[in-house]
């Protein structure tokens, strides 16, 4: 494109000149080609994305974030509870913890998780 072309309005040409000045080092080094190729790749990806693929990716995102969230919640809360007392819990306290419904649900969940991992081996 000839930037000195008189058809370019006087208001736009300083903008184009400034842009060209910014791009010049990239052009001189032959690196602008990479950026144009990258834009083409991004454009291809947009063309390839369809609603069912976006839905699958979105569900994957939800699963990943929900799992990370639950695990980090559990670790944070357990850490806070475990560090409340300077003494480690005694055997009786551990047994008492086992009697709590939340603990039994959590242990059941952990065992079930291992069970399903086993099924997939």
């Amino acid at each position: 494109m000839d930037l000195s072309n008189e058809s370019i309005s006087p208001a736009i040409s300083p903008v184009l000149n400034a842009l060209m000045e910014k791009l010049k080092p990239l052009i001189d080094g032959g690196r602008l080609d990479n950026l144009v190729d990258l834009l083409s790749l991004v454009s291809d990806l947009v063309d390839l994305l369809d609603p069912p693929m976006v839905e699958k990716l979105a569900v994957l995102f939800e699963n990943a974030t929900a799992t990370t969230w639950s695990v980090s919640n559990a670790i944070r809360t357990a850490k806070a509870d475990s560090t409340k007392s300077e003494q480690p819990p005694g055997v009786y306290q551990l047994l008492k913890l086992l009697r709590e419904p939340d603990t039994r649900r959590g242990v059941g969940f952990a065992l079930k998780t291992l069970n399903v991992i086993g099924r997939q081996l």
Binding site: L49, E55, A58, V59, F61, E62, T65
Partner: peptide, 23 residues
């Protein structure tokens, strides 16, 4: 745009739940 439509679709199907969780 099509991209805007896909963004909305992704929000409907997954991003929303992370927003509700305050993430």
């Amino acid at each position: 745009t099509k991209l805007g439509g896909l963004l909305r679709h992704g929000f409907n199907r997954g991003l929303y739940w992370a927003v509700a969780r305050g993430m």
